[in-house]
């Protein structure tokens, strides 16, 4: 499987209407001269609203970089990233912050929570930072969904790793963002806790029409998604739709050769 780009849709000139996030010709270069690293090379990709996408690829292939740039945490060297139809390069730090607060949810692999805040306070953090009361009913529902109702007034140090990641997912959902980026959300969890998190994300997409982009190394996790993108050396090299653990595994094997 070395034939790469013909599996991809033709590059759109502007993001399509139902795109939650997209990039056009995204490149990211770290360092200069000898130490130059091309983390992303001319990546054009689109994540449609209401879908659960997974990004896979070997270590150092640029998965995190792609996410960070799409989420407004980092800036591209060339090309453009969009949230909805909003081009990110045009935004100031302040505007990007507002965008992250209102439109984007995050789940990181670890250290997702503020240790001094309770689970509930962590969940409502983006809302609180915006100074909005938020929708209490919705927050309760989210907490209920991730089965944290009886632990919501505990601090992170009093929660298990799985519970902590559930809090992180709940936080990402609480502000009803346009898109959630999850970078190896289950990477630090045992398979049972990991499965729980993935279930929640799946339900968020199915029942709440949430859009989620998740980076993972695990074919079983990837199988929860609607679509898997494969990255290698800063390029999208393959894509499969409606993956199963086996099809993902096979693709990985094939790409690895």
């Amino acid at each position: 499987m070395t034939e790469t780009s013909e599996h991809l849709p033709p590059a759109p000139r502007v993001p399509a209407g139902d795109s939650a996030a997209s990039t056009i010709g995204a490149s990211k270069v770290y360092g200069m001269g000898d130490t130059e690293v091309h983390a992303l090379r001319d990546v054009t990709v689109q994540f449609e609203t209401g879908r659960f996408s997974a990004i896979m690829g070997p270590s150092g292939s640029g998965k995190s970089t792609l996410m960070h740039c799409m989420a407004g945490l980092d800036r591209l060297t060339a090309g453009e990233a969009y949230i909805g139809s909003q081009a990110l390069s045009a935004l100031s730090d302040k505007a990007l912050t507002m965008l992250r607060r209102e439109k984007i949810g995050f789940v990181f692999q670890a250290y997702n929570l503020i240790p001094t805040l309770t689970a509930r306070e962590n969940i409502t953090l983006p809302l609180d930072l915006a100074g909005s009361k938020g929708d209490r009913g919705w927050v309760d529902e989210v907490i209920e969904t991730v089965s944290l109702t009886d632990r919501q007034h505990h601090r992170p140090s009093e929660l298990s790793g799985g519970q902590q990641q559930r809090v992180a997912v709940a936080r990402a959902l609480a502000s009803r963002p346009a898109i959630i980026f999850a970078d190896e959300p289950t990477g630090n969890l045992d398979s049972r806790s990991g499965a729980e998190i993935l279930e929640f994300m799946r339900r968020a997409v199915d029942e709440l029409a949430q859009t989620i982009v998740m980076v993972t190394h695990d074919p079983v996790s990837a199988a929860y998604s609607d679509r898997v993108l494969f990255l290698n050396d800063g390029r999208i090299v393959h894509e499969i739709a409606d993956p199963t653990a086996d099809s993902v595994y096979d693709t990985m094997r094939a790409l690895g050769d």
């Binding site: 989420a71 945490l73 730090d93 302040k94 912050t97 507002m98 992250r100 607060r101 209102e102 995050f106 990181f108 250290y111 997702n112 929570l113 503020i114 240790p115 953090l125 983006p126 930072l129 915006a130 936080r171």
Partner: peptide, 16 residues
């Protein structure tokens, strides 16, 4: 540092 980074990621402005 990490905590502040996280806060910034989820929408805390510099002023905040």
């Amino acid at each position: 540092t990490r905590e502040i980074g996280l806060l910034r990621a989820v929408g805390m402005t510099r002023a905040q």
